[in-house]
Design a protein around this nucleic acid. Structure first.
Lengths: 155, 155
DNA sequence: CTGCCTGCAAACTCTTTGCACGAAT
DNA sequence: ATTCGTGCAAAGAGTTTGCAGGCAG
């Protein structure tokens, strides 16, 4: 999905929900889709302000749930206190797992289709209906620690 | 593992680490192991104070990491802002997944031995060495929502 | 023109920390 | 007698919210 297609999808989503298409929301969208890696609300605020200085922290926090609900953004909570976000460029709803490198603090997304099966199986045993699954692996990078170089490039 | 065996394990752990065996730490331990379900730091404080009114919030927060490190307690972060804890009565380090019921807010622990294999596989692809895994499923309980009764009893 | 959206700053929640006193070893 | 542990209250981080004015529809 191209960025302009995603942008259109965002506008349509807002309209269909009866929400207004404001310059601030568009700036936040553009800032989010310009990111190459996972970002925090604070980082997004910085980038959005570079596009439109009138964007406030409050609006960023109010817009993030909208973009998450529209599936344009993925929310990732790795238990560090702050939430991370990542543009969903493929537009799909495929299950993904996260691998968090404890040495470079980067987050890698890995397709994990079996997670859905697992959620169904386990939930059925309890008489529940699965809604979401999260699979996260935190790992160390020996190469980085020993050589000082991270062997992985920015995706 | 009986509760008194666990209590001894806690005392031994403290001693071996050069930490002191205080009444407050023991009260917090006893309060934790008296819980039937997952609990928060605040709930633990309440129960510990019932055993020893001198226990403070600060000491609870300072003791929780110690009990977690000693594997007597398991820390569970389901992304709600507050952390949950659960006594590890079996004493093992088996991988467990959590199923969180969005209707009764209860947390169920499910053995998930394949998680370790998965962490290894995924990490190896990235050249990383896995440290921890988290697998969580959030699910709805239709029975509870429709009848008002939760079909699962407290474990 | 109407009412949703905004920025600002204060409030909130959970957790951590500095300090002086108190208790375990 | 040491030194670590403690309670208290304040600080801290991240996020949410009340309000008065502003802009989209």
């Amino acid at each position: 999905m191209s960025i302009s297609a995603a942008r259109d999808k965002f506008r349509v989503f807002l309209s269909q929900k009866g929400l207004r298409v404001t310059n601030q929301r568009l700036a936040i969208f553009d800032a989010a889709f310009a990111q190459k890696e996972h970002f925090t609300a604070e980082q997004l605020l910085d980038h959005a302000r570079a596009l439109d200085p009138s964007v406030s922290r409050a609006t960023v926090y109010r817009t993030l749930p909208i973009m998450t609900e529209s599936a344009l953004l993925r929310e990732v909570d790795i238990g560090t206190g702050e939430k991370f976000y990542h543009p969903n460029r493929e537009g799909g709803t495929t299950q993904v797992a996260q691998v968090v490198c404890l040495d470079c603090d980067r987050i890698f997304e890995i397709s994990a289709p079996f997670m859905e099966w697992y959620g169904n199986t386990v939930s059925a045993k309890l008489g529940l209906r699965p809604v979401t699954q999260r699979l996260q692996v935190s790992a160390r990078c020996d190469t980085l620690r020993l050589t000082g170089n991270c062997p992985r490039r920015v995706s």
